[in-house]
């Protein structure tokens, strides 16, 4: 126990007794992750095999990780942020170095991911790639005679009040690409201002900016919205279950890509269990779980062959490195993050 923690505990004695007691229980993992990443079909066999008990807390966006870790308290052992957020967690010291010699499947993972800038610093690795996908667009098949192929469709005056966009700084990425600015993660102030103008122009078309996966599904299902960006594979599958036919497409202007990694929170008392969890996550069991539950692509193509049919393997672009390279993989915005966030807030303040 560190001195700082002890002093904090002296202040609020009763709460801390509980915290210390739970921290000392070996083999309990608290993971801060996305819905669908801690499915019972994966967690229960893991708990049975290792004796490590897993409790999951869910985030609604990547912006939830840093504030929850900054609030302190040593609550979480593992976090699963996306590649735009990983590096700032490393820089803030919230996560610790990973000994890749303890990750048996490390060599099987895509090189594009294991060597990504976002998960390393000074030659040390801080994250184990877990799942990936694109941010394509999707539309209601019954509402379009000619399938849309460009982001410009979301600005089409004929779609007044029928468009949605993710309530996120990524709206700026979309508008910037429409402007022809492909450097979406390093936009200048002028480029951001131009993207803001485009988004304000788009306003009459916007029915609602969606903030959760479920909300977008509801918007499509209740006939409010016909076209939007989406978390590739996830919401379209939920809509298919509801009998709503939607089509995903990568526009001419390209699509963002994302990749989520498991990271170990600095100073976790449950390191042994954490490594067991990280290994399970990139094994065929863990990767098969995220594929079945979320429909996301696998970071481990070797394991993916075990649970995907050849058709699924190619449908999820597991055999197509060009596809992966064509995606604009999310990048950390570093000190430009507040500029993007305020620009997006400013659009919504109009």
């Amino acid at each position: 126990m560190t001195k700082k923690r002890f002093l904090g505990c002296a202040g609020i004695a009763s709460i801390c007794v509980a915290t210390l007691a739970s921290a000392s229980t070996a083999g309990e993992l608290n993971i801060l992750t996305w819905e669908g990443y801690a499915d019972p079909s994966v967690i229960e066999p893991f708990e049975a095999a290792t004796g490590c008990k897993v409790s999951a807390t869910y985030v609604g966006s990547n912006d939830d990780f840093a504030p929850k870790l900054a609030a302190g308290g040593g609550v979480f052992d593992i976090v699963t942020p996306s590649i735009d957020t990983t590096f700032s967690l490393i820089e803030a010291g919230f996560v610790q170095e990973i000994d890749i010699s303890r990750i048996s499947a490390w060599g099987d993972l895509y090189k594009q991911f294991t060597t990504a800038d976002g998960i390393q610093k000074d030659g040390k690795i801080y994250g184990v790639p877990y799942a990936w996908g694109a941010i394509p667009f999707m539309y209601r098949k019954d509402k379009f005679d000619t399938p849309p192929t460009s982001i410009a469709a979301l600005w089409d005056p004929a779609l007044k009040g029928r468009v949605s966009l993710w309530d996120d700084k990524s709206a700026l990425y979309v508008a910037a690409r429409l402007n022809g600015d492909m450097n979406i993660y390093s936009l200048s102030d002028e480029q951001i201002a131009a993207a803001q103008v485009k988004l304000i122009e788009q306003r009459p078309n916007i029915r609602k900016y969606w903030s959760t996966a479920g909300e977008l599904v509801d918007l499509f299902k209740s006939d409010e919205v016909w076209i939007s960006n989406t978390w590739g594979g996830y919401q379209s599958a939920l809509l298919a279950d509801e009998g709503v036919e939607v089509v995903e497409f990568i526009p001419e202007e390209g699509a963002e890509g994302w990749m989520d990694s498991n990271m170990i929170v600095t100073g976790t008392p449950n390191e042994e269990c954490a490594y067991q969890f990280l290994n399970m996550a990139v094994s065929a069991e863990g990767q098969g779980g995220v594929f079945r539950v979320n429909g996301y692509s696998s970071t481990n193509p070797v394991a993916a062959k075990e649970f995907m049919t050849p058709e699924e393997f190619s449908a999820l672009h597991q055999d197509d490195p060009d596809y992966l390279n064509s995606l604009l993989l999310w990048e950390n915005l570093a000190d430009r993050l507040p500029v993007y966030t305020n620009a997006w807030n400013s659009v919504k303040s109009q």
Binding site: S61, D63, P67, L337, P338, T341, N342, N345, K348
Partner: peptide, 16 residues
């Protein structure tokens, strides 16, 4: 968007 949403986004998204 209301003022409480902006405050929430400063504590969350912007980490400001």
């Amino acid at each position: 968007l209301m003022i409480a949403n902006v405050i929430a986004s400063q504590f969350g998204a912007a980490l400001n």
